[in-house]
């Protein structure tokens, strides 16, 4: 039996467009878990941090959409840093697998999203014309790669464990071993760059960049645990690193008009 819905009394609900209690925008970003723009212990942030308040913007289509990537954008060795720059042998260093899922705040996997990563070599030197650290370049190591997540948000790559290195903040500042990550998600408002650290690294609590994060739990979530179950026996250790992007509100009633 088809029951006629009662006439809607709220004038908002009688507009020609469908009622949307929830518009599909992203959850508001919780800035208390992110480093503040101005974090004087990380000296480079002082002159590069906006001082005005950010203008809060309800997500429009401009922020809810973002670039779509596919396997055509990648090459077959892009997620294998042991092979993708090898010239006459394997790179020097501890062989590791890094794997995990890209999730959103509701816990759903983010499928088919581009994950890019870059790092120093095992001696703590970047293959970059501006890096002048005295540790040597490894002729067989480029230090970058990328992957698309699968249907469940899972990604993985193989590399060597990066080394710590000194940098000019205080005279004796050292970065803990880390891998940089860039992640897209489905909308430009989810765009995120972060860094992954390694469980047990004694440099973590004294890093001026890592300690810009005001929330200890948020900081701990950047530290990847050793994952022996995912290691390749007699070949590579594994570390697990899940990444969480902003969640998206549902569009419960998008395809329904009032009264239907």
């Amino acid at each position: 039996m088809n029951v006629q819905a009662p006439a809607l009394q709220d004038s908002r609900l009688n507009r020609p467009e469908p009622f949307r209690p929830s518009d599909g925008g992203f959850f508001q970003r919780d800035r208390s878990i992110h480093p503040p723009a101005h974090a004087p212990g990380y000296k480079s942030s002082v002159l590069r941090s906006p001082r005005q308040s950010l203008l809060s913007l309800e997500n429009s289509i401009s922020e809810m959409t973002g670039p779509v990537f596919g396997h055509n954008d990648l090459g077959p060795l892009d997620n294998d840093l042991i092979r993708n720059y090898a010239k006459d042998g394997d790179p020097i260093g501890e062989r590791i697998i890094v794997h995990g899922r890209v999730l959103d705040e509701t816990g759903r996997g983010v499928p088919n999203t581009l994950v890019e990563f870059w790092q120093a070599n095992a001696g703590g030197r970047y293959r970059h014309k501006k890096d002048t650290y005295l540790a040597p370049i490894d002729p067989n190591f480029g230090g970058c790669g990328r992957a698309l997540t699968d249907d469940t948000g899972y990604y993985y790559f193989r590399t060597v464990k990066p080394g710590p290195y000194p940098w000019r903040n205080y005279v004796n500042s050292w970065r803990p071993a880390h891998i940089h990550f860039s992640v897209f998600g489905s909308g430009f408002a989810q765009r995120l760059i972060t860094q992954m650290y390694f469980e047990g690294d004694p440099l973590i609590p004294v890093c001026p960049i890592l300690t810009t994060i005001p929330d200890q739990d948020a900081l701990d979530r950047l530290v990847a645990p050793l994952d022996l179950n995912a290691s390749a026996p007699f070949d590579s250790l594994a570390y697990r690193f899940d990444i969480v992007l902003r969640g998206q509100r549902s569009t419960y009633f998008e395809n329904r008009t009032a009264g239907n």
């Binding site: 970059h128 990328r146 940089h180 739990d217 950047l222 902003r246």
Partner: peptide
């Protein structure tokens, strides 16, 4: 709900990962 992963600076060597030709390779 899960919490968003904290952001970290892209650093001075961001080109390696995102525009390797600018890093010099």
């Amino acid at each position: 709900y899960l919490k968003e992963t904290a952001s970290q600076t892209a650093g001075p060597y961001v080109h390696i990962g995102l525009i390797p030709a600018m890093a010099g390779f």
